[in-house]
Design a protein around this nucleic acid. Structure first.
Length: 594
RNA sequence: GGCUCCGUAGUUCAAUUGGAUAGAAUGACAGGUUUCGGCCCUGUUGGUUGGGGGUUCGAAUCCCUCCGGGGUCACCA
């Protein structure tokens, strides 16, 4: 049992005996003492002053005295206004330190048979264009959340949903057929997803020209758009696809194949992966029977024209159409089908969708419908609604060409890491494989940290110039600290064998570090509960800053007192381990040297 | 317009979920045994938490209102 919880239950006991009141665990809970004050844990006593009929100071004083008598771990306390600061014994912290400092999986909860199954959907690409900056945030978040959930003791299943059908992919196909002259990834040397994306743009170009020409001849914009030959052709192509026309399907398969080869490269570079990929072309028909079944059970209604909808007005939402009058599915119907399919495939207890907050309304409706259909697992659905990525000049607009491409972005980061690292000249003895691996580690570390340090729920500004910065609150800063500790530990290898004993004197900064690594498991827990990698990112940064300050102020290998020296070496070891484990949760590697 | 999310140093982000004097980074300026790896460390500077009201021992956080911004309101996805 964690010491905070022990203290909390003792506090409940204390106020019951002293003031004759019963309090909730929340009221008796302690929090970490702020660093400006002396102490380890703090109780806020204001909620008890009415019952104690004493001043806040005296209330705190009484509780403090009682706790000090009852708990051997509490050696002293002080009172500032209504705040009771408790200080734990060095022996307590020492006991914690010695029993965990060598544990390479410190903070991680093991997974066993009774672990919950947690599914996470992320990425969600379309097959008509390459991944962009928005997908990057999505993928990094999704992957990191999965790592955190695993570390918190869940069985995690990572799934992707690929939007591989519909008018958008037909546009690329048609343009390729008309203007492509048989171009392939091999013949052009282009990555498959980029090649297909090129023809999507190509379609738009020709289409716009047709529209403009018609408008010049006096048609309204609407008429021109609707009747442009290209638009009519592409709609016919979609019908052909739905009818199973062989030539159309063959072209579709070929071009999607190119795209998937391209995506695989991008996923690998990003360091993300999936246990199962769902394709909309395979699931889009599945929701229909569920809706029809819902109609029979009168959960849904039918209009005179045959379309089927659900009335959510009693829940503060609107009517939502689920099947068109011609009987075909709409987007949300596919999502209903896919969700049921997944529940049958994996029997998850939770399913989190990593999708941008522009779809908040969609998921509200989706979850509500699934609940109304009576699926028990529907209560375990969660929309991890993250904020959109914006650029200094505003939103990304594909029409204005301001989209930041994922592959280009990663390449830029790695090139910058290359340049910066070579300038420092510390890795002159690396061969080219080692060096390239390092540049990738640093460049991707910078990018990942930059995107994960901000609260997922908030929109974020992506400033290319700042993201590439390696100083301050950045990934490379953390990686550097790790590499430096690693170098220290290598040199210390011999002396570290001596037995670890508690030093006579423990410095404040050492004590702070011990307390910080002690927090790691609860940081993981909180990050898992709130689906927030940002908590881990900010925690590890704080730890690194504290370590650097300690490193600056105190000798480690050069410390003359051997007991203190051994302690400091092992404290460094413990910190390095927690840094590494934290970064792993963010999907970021740490280099042994840099 | 309805619904919804957001607004914190010049800028980018924090703030233990209602707790102490709102903290970091960056920028600017000033400093520090580059020999345990200086991609480091220490200062100074910078705030009416968008404005106003309310709730209470206590509000950046909860409620109301106004101002400003985003998203969303399809038989599109």
């Amino acid at each position: 049992m964690k010491i905070e919880n022990q203290i909390t239950s003792k506090i409940a006991e204390a106020v019951s005996i002293l003031f004759n009141i019963t309090v909730s665990p929340a009221q008796a809970a302690v929090q970490k003492t702020k660093s400006e004050f002396v102490g380890d844990f703090t109780l806020v006593v204001f909620p008890f002053v009415k019952a104690s009929k004493l001043s806040p100071e005296n209330t705190a004083q009484k509780i403090g005295e009682w706790l000090q008598k009852e708990m051997k771990e509490i050696t002293s306390f002080n009172v500032v206004k209504g705040f009771l600061n408790l200080e734990l014994s060095n022996e307590y912290w020492w006991e914690f330190f010695t029993s965990n400092y060598k544990n390479s999986s410190f903070g991680y909860t093991p997974i066993n048979e009774s672990s919950k199954i947690q599914m996470v959907e992320y990425c969600g690409p379309n097959t008509n264009k390459p991944l962009h900056l928005g997908h990057v945030r999505n993928c990094l978040l999704g992957y990191s959340v999965c790592e955190i959930l695993k570390a918190n003791g869940n069985k995690v299943i990572k799934v992707n949903i690929v939007n591989d059908r519909g008018i958008h992919i037909c546009k690329s196909m048609l343009a390729w057929k008309k203007y492509g002259a048989g171009e392939t990834p091999e013949s052009s040397g282009m990555k498959g997803d980029h090649l297909v994306g090129k023809y999507y743009v190509e379609f738009d170009k020709h289409y716009k020209k047709q529209v403009n020409d018609s408008m010049a001849q006096g048609l309204t914009k609407e008429e021109a758009e609707k009747n442009a030959p290209l638009m009519l052709e592409v709609k016919q192509m979609l019908r052909d696809w739905e009818d199973g026309d062989e030539a159309t399907l063959a072209l579709w398969n070929k071009m999607n194949g190119w795209v998937y080869d391209g995506f695989d490269i991008t996923y690998a570079k990003l360091g993300v992966d999936f246990d199962k990929i769902y394709y909309e072309s395979q699931t889009y028909l599945y929701g229909k029977e569920i809706v029809l079944n819902g109609l029979q059970r009168e959960i849904m209604q039918q209009r005179a024209d045959g379309s089927i909808y659900i009335d959510l007005s009693k829940d503060g939402l609107d009517e939502k159409t689920l099947l068109r009058s011609d009987g075909t599915s709409v987007y949300i119907t596919q999502d209903i089908g896919t969700a049921v399919l997944r529940a049958n495939d994996y029997h998850f207890s939770n399913l989190a969708y990593v999708v941008a907050n522009e779809q908040d309304y969609h998921f509200k409706v989706l979850f509500l419908i699934l609940q109304k259909l009576g699926y028990t697992w529907a209560n375990g659905l969660y929309h991890l609604s993250y904020g959109m990525v914006e650029l200094p000049e505003g939103k990304m607009k594909s029409r204005e060409g301001t989209v930041v491409d994922a592959d280009d972005l990663m390449e830029q980061m790695i090139l910058t890491a290359d340049k910066t690292t070579r300038e420092l000249g510390k890795i002159d003895d690396f061969d080219s494989v080692e060096a390239n691996d390092l540049f990738r580690t640093i460049g991707m570390g910078a990018l990942k940290y930059f995107m994960l340090k901000v609260d997922p729920k908030k929109k974020m500004l992506f400033n290319p110039a700042e993201s590439i910065d390696f100083n301050g609150h950045t990934g490379p800063f953390i990686q550097y600290t790790y590499a430096r500790i690693n170098s220290l530990l290598k040199k210390a290898a011999a002396s570290a064998i001596e037995p670890l004993k508690m030093p006579m004197e423990i410095q404040n900064k050492e004590r702070e570090l011990v307390k910080m690594v002690y927090d790691f498991p609860s940081v993981i827990n909180q990050a898992a509960e709130t689906y927030s990698p940002a908590l881990v990112a900010n925690y590890v940064y704080e730890l690194v800053k504290n370590y650097n300050s300690f490193y600056h102020d105190f000798p480690i290998l050069k410390e003359e007192d051997s007991t203190t020296r051994i302690f400091r070496i092992n404290l460094s070891l413990f910190c390095a381990q927690v840094i590494k484990n934290s970064m792993k949760l963010l999907g970021i590697e740490v280099p042994e040297r840099m």
